[in-house]
Design a binder for these strands. Sequence first.
DNA 1: GCCTAGGTCCCGTAC
DNA 2: GTACGGGGCCTAGGC
Lengths: 245, 245
Amino acid sequence: MELYPAMDEINNALKKNHIIVIFSNCNVEYSGRAQSFIAKGDRMIIMKHDGTILVHKPDGRTPVNWMPNKSIIEIKVENDSLEITCTNSKTSEVMIIRAFNIYSITSAPLVDNEQLRLLGTEKDMSDMLYSTPSLISEDFTPVSREEQTKYGFLDVFGHNSKGELVIVECKRYTAGLDSVTQLRRYVERVKKSKGITKVQGIIAAPNISQNALKMLTDWGFSYKNISPPYRFSKEEEKQAKINEF
Amino acid sequence: MELYPAMDEINNALKKNHIIVIFSNCNVEYSGRAQSFIAKGDRMIIMKHDGTILVHKPDGRTPVNWMPNKSIIEIKVENDSLEITCTNSKTSEVMIIRAFNIYSITSAPLVDNEQLRLLGTEKDMSDMLYSTPSLISEDFTPVSREEQTKYGFLDVFGHNSKGELVIVECKRYTAGLDSVTQLRRYVERVKKSKGITKVQGIIAAPNISQNALKMLTDWGFSYKNISPPYRFSKEEEKQAKINEF
DNA sequence: GCCTAGGTCCCGTAC
DNA sequence: GTACGGGGCCTAGGC
């Protein structure tokens, strides 16, 4: 495709707030939070109505380059290439695409007012533990969940029958060293704030790494094997695999 | 576009290992590590040669649904919709797209052998501190960088003239509470492994949050204001903004 | 605006 | 494979 008609077509689609997909041979330069460059190759460029720009390689889940929404696009023909300059004033970033060949331009006025509904997050897990505390222990009474207390953001927070405070940190996947240090930080903050020495710390997760478990017990905390709702347990996953594939 | 011709066109493009972009009105169901559903709306579906599938809303940087590479795509016509089932045996995930209207299908055989070169990462920063340790202190001699020592993965590791060990944790952005707990974990591990009590802990970052700084000093660690190479300092960023926009 | 923490995080790397 | 940590992370929620 010739460069000038391509420029006109893209500008028209931008004016109409369409989503635009361009297949092209291009290089990409980026400068802002870091700096990057990728030499000429065939890529897919996506321009969205909100000013998001994505550059995808033929493989891979993650865009090789991108610009956040509210970026401004300017196009000009420069010698042998279409130069697409994307600037974002909020993040002080610039991305320049130089397209030497434009294979195709597709655009459409997409309308989508729906939102994703998602189940099985960490919040769902803390909700479950809050409403069914016996999953943690018969001797656990939750008081708050997923709340920014003055001790920090605690997943589930409560006490046992002796009146000792209990902090539960949920993880929807394997708990690692970072999970333990996070719990430890919360426990220490509560201890210091309240001027007490006894606070129970519990990690609730479907799994925990060996190192994390060692650190956890070294610090006097405990682990409770619990899976988030709507997430298959390891055993169920294996069974599902056998059945499905 | 009619459903059967659409199915044929997609299957042909899949066979040829093309990248495929479909504009359509569809709903999407996902099940695996979590579960999700989004009702009918106009979206862009991308199928890549490596088995990656992305579903994008008209707005936003992140795909609303996706499947990792090596996913398998099966298509059939089901009443009033094209049903695209994507399964991944490795992650035990399934995504089903039901497309009720197909607005367009575009495909192309993209070739891209280039790789992104990126500057200004945390590794670049630790390399800089290793080769120019005076940025940390005149009294600092680095020994290793970015290495998996037996004490864990340390960004920069060395000693001062008194022979005391020094651990530097780099962050390319604002250091937060997690950065401090991470440093603390490393320091404690080294102390324990070596059976010593004096280890210097330093966070090197262009910025640090108030809470993090407090926790840092409470623990006897220190902060050094250092920006990663190729990254503008806050002041330079502000100046650049004024000049550019 | 900053700070905090999760994410179907993704991704590379070392073990 | 698991585990650990970075990322131009992105995104949502508080303050």
